[in-house]
Nucleic acid binder design. Structure first.
Lengths: 211, 211
DNA sequence: CATTCAAGCGGACACGGTGTCCACATAACC
DNA sequence: GGTTATGTGGACACCGTGTCCGCTTGAATG
């Protein structure tokens, strides 16, 4: 990486882009349907297992035909991604240009701990959506993931870790939606306790006692 | 936990039990079919995306009817679990009673590093099966997972970590099959490099300089 | 305000996978 | 060799997916 202080600037702060027509202003009924779809989907994801939500469910709950739904979203995961977009962009902004320790200016281990805390909060508040959006392999191909990855690579590098590229995945893996769901709902750990354990890990891993 | 040197003894060292008749000796044709099913499934999981393998695929490749397959295995994941059983039991045995550093007798951070190395090796050799067996949430409900969990809890406790229970998940998350697949096949990291990064993490996290 | 036309809509279809049922076959036991 | 319990697999109904095509409707134009 050339840029020493490099941040993953502009890596995923683009427009919503998922399910929204690009060129001209959308038609009134189209916009209304889109809003109905998103509202219905948010409800459905929350009230049953997000991975069991089908395209037919969403279309029926939104009061539109299935083909109308398919016109904008290729699958249920894309709907969830659209619902998550704004929350994730907000967090990304705070990471790039917000106040420390989440933003620039704090030592790497503290920035990592703050990132963990923010992500645990995001997971806690929007777990159904995240489960619906990032099921299985899809997690790694989504745009947001590339951003988290780039961010953590910068932090690992700044902390002088031996192989930042290879360290990124272990740092990010505990934030997998399924992992969080298991800890919170199956094992009964509070989000605060999960965040505390991650903060401890962050300081152990990137803390600068020897290097 | 009462048992100070406690190991999760007998937690998952039971009989294969998946798809094998329990009580009496199985019929000759049943045993033959079972072997054909497992052989065919192993082949299929290796040659295409394990998550795209269907019950019909396995039955056809094994030369048996679909209902025969359903008699033993409720879904494709169970077939993969049966194929993994022996490898995992072998590793579990080494962890409980094998030589250090994998077995008892080494400091926690070294045992964790050895566990990571062994798991990376298992993942590298049997990734298709693991992807087929532990897709998504199922990972957390499988028997083997409970064993890894218990093992890491013991190590974290021995290292004096503040909240071993909450630390287990972050320690285990990087070993999710999807995470490994992404690192090795998408990011192009060699298993050795992945293992090295995990070993470094293990020593930072559980290494005993300050506790 | 009437006309025109592209964009949006949704009912209907074909396909493929799942899980179950039941009539038949066959190995194991007497 | 006859009997029985177990194993087998073809067939069925159901559900979700993804696509096609004729109809509707909003918006731009004269």
């Amino acid at each position: 990486m050339e840029n020493g202080a490099g941040h993953p600037e502009g890596l995923l702060l683009d427009e919503p882009s998922v399910g929204a027509p690009a060129g001209r202003r959308p038609r009134a009924d189209a916009a209304r349907n889109r809003a109905q779809i998103l509202a219905a989907a948010r409800r459905l994801f929350a009230e049953k297992d997000p991975r069991a939500v089908t395209m037919g469910d969403i279309a029926r709950a939104a009061g539109v035909g299935r083909a109308t739904l398919y016109r904008r979203f290729p699958d249920t995961a894309s709907v969830a991604v659209a619902l998550l977009d704004e929350h994730e962009r907000e967090l990304q902004g705070a990471m790039i240009s917000g106040p420390p320790p989440l933003g620039p200016g704090a030592p790497p281990e503290e920035r990592l701990a703050a990132f963990y805390a923010a992500m645990v909060d995001l997971l806690d508040r929007h777990l159904p959506l995240l489960l619906g959006a990032e099921t299985g392999e899809r997690r790694y191909t989504t745009g947001a993931y590339a951003f988290w990855r780039a961010h953590l690579r910068v932090l690992a590098r700044a902390a002088g870790a031996p192989d930042p590229e290879a360290l990124v995945e272990p740092l990010l893996a505990p934030l997998a939606p399924e992992a969080f769901a298991h800890q919170r709902d199956r094992a009964g750990l509070s989000p605060a306790r999960i965040a505390a354990a991650l903060a401890w890990s962050a300081r152990r891993l990137l803390g600068g006692q020897d290097r």
